[in-house]
Simulated scan of single mutants.
Amino acid sequence: MTDTTLSPGPARRWLRRLGGADAPPAKRVQFDRPLTPWLFLAPQLAVVVIFFYWPSVQAVTSSFYLEDPFGFGASFVGLDNYRDTLAAREYRGIALFTAGFAAVVTALALGLGLLLAVKADKVIRGAGAYKTALISVYAIAPPVAALIGMMLFDMHVGPFTQAAAFFGYDLKVGINYWDTAFAMVLIAVWKQIPYNFIFFLSGLQSVPVSVREAALIDARSGWRRFWDVTLPLLAPTAFFLLIINVTYALFDTFGIIDVIVKDKPANNPMTLVYKVYLDGFKGNDIGGSSAQSVILMVLVAALTVVQFRFLERRVHYG
């Protein structure tokens, strides 16, 4: 009878691979000097401190002062900047528009990105060209996307304006409040769809073939298979994209809004982040602008806490 017992050498190697009890402890990286790790972290820490913490502290400090626009002095006014901001009817209207804008842009960008990813996942011939055409839009900078959108909405030669006129509607982007809001949403969604498409397509392609085959046997309806099997597996990806898209709608659409409402902000909608820029750099109201930025920062932090506290509970990480 042949002895199949592993020799000490191979057995030890197998235990190491499997993480067995006899496996030697993993080696920890050791530095000769305790300051060496901090030297490696110093560039990243410097970037965070200079471009995040320091401006945040400056904004909070400036929000309690009424500053001279030419920098000759500042007077402490306490919470007056916050009271004036929250009491202003214009600010409340802009805050309401920002909430609606973020909700619509997030919902449409996620929904259309998921729809295109599902369709692209089924393409066999020409899949590379199809995916490249969808992803290429993401390489366009937001201001450039806005310029392209404004050409499409031009009141004289824009194809969208002419199409609306064909149906009897006079589309006036830049003049009419709701027409401008429609253009903002459309351009912002168009710009964000490729980002969502990339992540959703990667998530769909990571679903095991065995799971798909089992779902095909259990449910004949494609919609039922998607709702019961595919979508729960995409929940971690969807949750990540939800946070990214809300942040995009609140902050990264600044370039789009700036191009659309430039030189005529009084007649057009805007978001809170653009209001901060308008009051601070155009109106020279440094204290009021700082108070608005602090309020926006608190709102975004609260929204993030709500998302992680309540929505993440429904996400199952397989």
Score class of each variant (00 low, 15 high):
1 M>H: 13
2 T>I: 15
4 T>Y: 11
4 T>A: 14
4 T>R: 12
6 L>E: 13
6 L>Y: 09
8 P>L: 13
10 P>E: 07
11 A>S: 09
12 R>M: 13
13 R>H: 08
13 R>V: 14
19 G>P: 00
20 G>R: 02
23 A>T: 12
27 K>F: 02
27 K>H: 12
27 K>M: 12
28 R>I: 15
29 V>K: 11
41 L>R: 09
42 A>S: 10
45 L>T: 03
48 V>H: 01
52 F>M: 12
53 Y>F: 14
58 Q>P: 04
60 V>M: 01
62 S>Q: 14
62 S>T: 09
65 Y>F: 14
68 D>W: 00
73 G>A: 03
75 S>T: 13
80 D>Y: 06
82 Y>V: 05
82 Y>E: 03
83 R>I: 14
86 L>Q: 06
90 E>A: 12
95 A>L: 14
96 L>W: 12
107 A>I: 13
107 A>V: 15
109 A>L: 07
109 A>F: 06
110 L>Y: 09
111 G>F: 12
112 L>W: 11
112 L>F: 14
121 D>R: 10
126 G>Y: 09
132 T>D: 11
133 A>Y: 05
138 Y>M: 10
140 I>Q: 04
140 I>E: 03
142 P>E: 06
144 V>R: 10
145 A>I: 08
149 G>C: 04
151 M>P: 00
153 F>V: 04
153 F>E: 00
154 D>M: 01
157 V>W: 03
158 G>Q: 02
158 G>H: 02
159 P>L: 05
159 P>E: 03
162 Q>Y: 09
163 A>I: 15
166 F>L: 13
168 G>P: 05
168 G>A: 06
168 G>R: 07
168 G>S: 06
169 Y>T: 11
170 D>M: 04
173 V>K: 13
174 G>C: 05
175 I>M: 06
175 I>Y: 10
176 N>S: 13
176 N>M: 02
177 Y>W: 15
179 D>I: 02
180 T>D: 07
181 A>L: 08
181 A>T: 10
181 A>S: 12
181 A>N: 08
183 A>S: 11
186 L>I: 15
187 I>F: 10
191 K>S: 11
196 N>V: 13
200 F>T: 02
200 F>N: 09
200 F>P: 05
202 S>N: 07
208 P>L: 06
210 S>P: 00
211 V>G: 02
211 V>A: 03
211 V>E: 07
213 E>I: 02
215 A>S: 12
218 D>T: 09
222 G>A: 10
222 G>S: 10
223 W>C: 04
225 R>G: 01
228 D>P: 00
230 T>A: 00
231 L>H: 08
232 P>T: 08
233 L>W: 07
233 L>T: 01
234 L>R: 01
236 P>L: 08
238 A>R: 11
239 F>Q: 05
239 F>P: 04
243 I>R: 01
244 I>R: 11
246 V>N: 03
247 T>Q: 14
249 A>R: 03
249 A>I: 07
251 F>S: 09
251 F>M: 11
255 G>E: 12
256 I>H: 07
260 I>C: 00
261 V>C: 04
262 K>T: 12
262 K>D: 14
264 K>C: 01
266 A>F: 10
266 A>R: 07
268 N>S: 09
277 Y>K: 04
284 N>E: 08
290 S>L: 10
295 I>D: 02
295 I>R: 00
296 L>M: 15
301 A>K: 03
301 A>D: 03
303 L>W: 03
304 T>L: 15
305 V>L: 10
306 V>R: 00
311 L>R: 00
315 V>F: 04
316 H>F: 05
317 Y>D: 00
